[in-house]
Design a binder for these strands. Structure first.
Lengths: 152, 152
DNA sequence: AACGATTAAATCGTATACGATTAATTATCG
DNA sequence: CGATAATTAATCGTATACGATTTAATCGTT
């Protein structure tokens, strides 16, 4: 057996040991869990996140959305154009500062909130966890994210 | 105030309340934390995950890799072709079953493991958590993923 | 052996996602 | 006031990622 490349397993952690991979897998799982629910209202998962930010606070700039979602304009611009083409929002240059593009919900975009309202409960139920457990887990992950961002 | 669209905030959970968003953000943070480290060895984050699976066990089919990473062949095939073009692995049809493509590390691909070996420790340090905390968090997330997958 | 069902990858179209660059506008400082 | 710096989106090139379809090979049943 000596000399085989499998003599030194300690060099490579097993994928299942990686916290980053558990997050990667969970992200996939969430995306898949949301997909059928979002398909009913014609949104993708990232589009749903953008709409959620706008339902929370309307009339935000591309930059504000990017900060909240950790996304670049190179990602947001095409995504927002698709939502605009769907008639869910408008994009207009800010009169005071023409560099800024302000994103506003249309009436259909605002109305969609009602149809999306039941989705979080579906996911909660699918997760099989209590609101309390979920909140604790969320806070731990958020703190981890904060530390990773500080370290970079 | 009555009649404003902001009368019913309960309809829309705040984005920060979403566990799914904390995972989404953590996935981004991990990806960004890994990026400079992986750039040194010329890998992207998904490519690193594939290589990790192969370092763990060489000579796997595209399907096996897909199962372990929750990825479709439509994602893996182009990714594997890039790694093949880099000379890190080979792709060959299985002699016993020509439907199957077996992926094997080349010597450079195997050697890369040594250069990648220090990366997990860097991330661990950046996360600012103990191995024990990390393990507990990982197990909770893995369980959550399992439940979400079962519910779909 | 034969033929329909199943399986494994690959392909295609669409949608993120990011870094680097560009374009347009605004701020700043001499 | 005017040149330069800084800011904001948009654009471009590359790399995931998935669903649906296609292709090729194998399996199952008769």
């Amino acid at each position: 057996m000596s000399g085989s490349r499998h003599d030194t397993p300690a060099l490579t952690a097993r994928l299942d040991d990686f916290l980053c991979f558990s997050i990667y897998a969970a992200e996939h799982a969430f995306s898949r869990a949301y997909k059928p629910l979002l398909a009913e209202i014609g949104l993708t998962y990232p589009q749903y996140l953008v709409m959620t930010v706008l339902w929370e606070e309307d009339d935000q700039s591309v930059g504000q959305l990017g900060t909240k979602l950790s996304l670049e304009s190179s990602t947001l611009t095409p995504l927002l154009k698709r939502l605009e083409a769907e008639g869910l929002l408008t994009r207009h240059r800010d009169k005071q500062d023409e560099r800024v593009v302000r994103v506003k919900l249309t009436q259909p975009g605002d109305k969609l909130r009602n149809r999306a309202a039941k989705i979080p409960a579906c996911i909660l139920s699918a997760s099989g966890m209590s609101l309390d457990e979920l909140g604790k887990l969320r806070d731990q992950i958020t703190q981890l994210t904060k530390r990773l961002e500080e370290a970079v």
